[in-house]
């Protein structure tokens, strides 16, 4: 039993200290999900101005997400615990920002997919 616990602890420490994803891409993409549905993806490297994105849940509760140049975070949430707000602003892929009561997830990853960004394509 102690061996199982020790193995789990070792696995977790390794997972936390050495995150597996490493790519050459400098671009950080942030995706906003609600109930498993992808609502919006931002390329944080291309964001030049602060903006907000509001997610309204079926029960009418709101999450206000602020997108800043290079980072993203939860500005306000209508939930009782506000854990997602306390998670602050993320600029690199690590653990996602999650608001469990409203089922909203902000996930960051490296990549350069073609995504919605107002000044992404300027010819």
């Amino acid at each position: 039993m102690l061996a199982i616990i020790a193995l789990l602890a070792l696995f977790s420490v390794i997972m936390i200290l050495f995150p597996s994803v490493h790519t050459d891409s400098e671009h950080v993409l942030a995706s906003i999900y609600q109930d498993g549905e992808l609502l919006e993806t931002y390329d944080l490297s291309l964001v030049s101005e602060k903006s907000t994105y509001t997610v309204t849940s079926r029960s009418g509760r709101q999450n206000i997400i602020e997108i800043r140049p290079g980072s993203i975070g939860m500005l306000h949430a209508d939930c009782p615990d506000h854990l997602c707000v306390e998670q602050g602003f993320l600029s690199h892929p690590s653990i996602p920002i999650t608001c469990l009561p409203n089922s909203v997830v902000i996930e960051l990853r490296y990549g350069d997919d073609t995504v919605h960004a107002p000044d992404a394509i300027t010819y």
Partner: peptide, 9 residues
């Protein structure tokens, strides 16, 4: 509930 695999992180 969230159906986002990222939460497994």
């Amino acid at each position: 509930i969230t159906r986002v695999p990222g939460v497994l992180a």
